[in-house]
Amino acid sequence: MIEFDQLTKEYNGIMAVDDLCLEIPDGEVFGLLGPNGSGKSTTILMLIGLIEPTEGRCLIDGVEVAKNPIEVKQRIGYMPEDVGFYGTLTADQNLDFFARLHGMAKTDREERINELLALVGLEDVEKKVGGYSKGMRQRLGIANALINDPAIVILDEPTANLDPQGVADYRRIIKEIAEQGKTVLVSSHILSEVSRVCTSIGILSQGRLVATGRWEDLARIPEGSTSGEIRINVRTREAMPEFSNPEIISVEYKDDRREACILSHSDIRDYISDTVQNAGTGIRELSLDRDSLEDFILSYYQEP
């Protein structure tokens, strides 16, 4: 479990992180969302012991980071936002160096490095890391974060420099990690990325945690406010059934009721899908307007 207990960091009178209290249970894929400068990276750097908190503390499995940094670092894998390696070494030489710092035996290192390079798609790259693109370095960063088979994986803006294939690979890797029961903390300012991989999120704004919870709970829109927009297209000539769900704010039918735009308080795509299929109608398209959802999440942000 990851715990932030009244964590505070002040730089020259500016609160980078302000009284953060948060618990992330084991096995959770947690997204730390927030605009640039909201304190996400500072929070993570305090969690891995690279920055000392002004006040408060971070704990991993009950072990306080500031007091037992080595014990904590043995349990975590970390990839920074601006990931960097030793440019004069190859990927496997870099990973070998970090694996040695974890005290891994030679045979274990070789096996693990080959496995991880294959996982991130760098197994056939022979050149030195100095010649890598940012995306390749990011892939190597993910491999490095997993080198010691950590119980907790911390990724700071993991998709920042990845190409579409890299992003797809990243999602696959996170899914695999989550299936192994590891705890994953992902920091990002890209809502769509967090929403795809995380089971719960916390929203930081100006150093303060303004919202936290499971994704579906947070996506529930406060009474009276604008909702996300769900679009549905049906395959047949038959009309769309009536929808009756307390979450629905309004339904607008188009094209002889073969298309509908539904405004709701929350993501009720499962309900819509079930209702349409129970009526014997095939669904051609069912989508949630992400922009609307993003606007909703952004309403939590208090831009400076």
Partner: peptide, 14 residues
């Protein structure tokens, strides 16, 4: 400059 310091110090070393 190469951003390797963060990764280096995130390992279990003093």
């Amino acid at each position: 400059e190469s951003k390797s310091l963060k990764i280096l110090l995130s390992n279990p070393i003093y």
